[in-house]
Design a protein around this nucleic acid. Sequence first.
DNA 1: CAGGATCCGGTTAGATACTG
DNA 2: CAGTATCTAACCGGATCCTG
Lengths: 118, 118
Amino acid sequence: MEKRKIELSESCRKSIQGIKDTQDLLSGKWKAAIVGALFYNGKFRFMDLSRHVVGVAPKVLSKELKDLEMNHLVKRTVLDTMPITVEYELTSQGKSLHRIIEAMGEWGIKYRKSLLKK
Amino acid sequence: MEKRKIELSESCRKSIQGIKDTQDLLSGKWKAAIVGALFYNGKFRFMDLSRHVVGVAPKVLSKELKDLEMNHLVKRTVLDTMPITVEYELTSQGKSLHRIIEAMGEWGIKYRKSLLKK
DNA sequence: CAGGATCCGGTTAGATACTG
DNA sequence: CAGTATCTAACCGGATCCTG
């Protein structure tokens, strides 16, 4: 019983830590949306991405992509074209976020609808 | 075919917007963790909450709770005790975040483990 | 106990312009 | 095309102390 209680709170503590870790990696106004765009479309060039993530400034997009790349969620590939083009895509690690991303998308859509009703 | 394509990109656009909306509501370093703590434990008093969300300063916790309350994700109840105590709990709207919260917790735990292997 | 008051430094993100 | 440079205002979040 006592043991049980400790285990429960221990697993809870771990979950909260996990939530925090995840939130840190997806911090800021744009990262989750960027991952979402890449998730739904596969590969994207910088310009296409900036068109799909509406409103993000190039400087900000560039910085967020670097962060995501550093954390191995996004892979950046420079293509040897003229002029050069760059492709961004999710790594397998990044793709493993799909449950979160899908849930966020669906929840956000429902939330917006529930606001309109009022 | 053309119709199909438009519908696809339309639903994608909506999903990205949903992701953004969700991320806005859970923005900042602590909100998701706070929701997680409330999710795993039900009700919490201010002090208990601050103990479970390790590291958060009272001022910050207070502000985040207000934000969450404003967006109808958290309900605040003042109990008529001496001295007064306050209980926080998720609203049904807040509880509906459970898929996101659970997924974030699980993903974060796995991510942390994958880091330790290296 | 549940916060508010104050102070503060760092980060964030936007606008605009520019480069290889 | 794929970013960088510069500037700036706003905000975030931490520390510390205080109050009903």
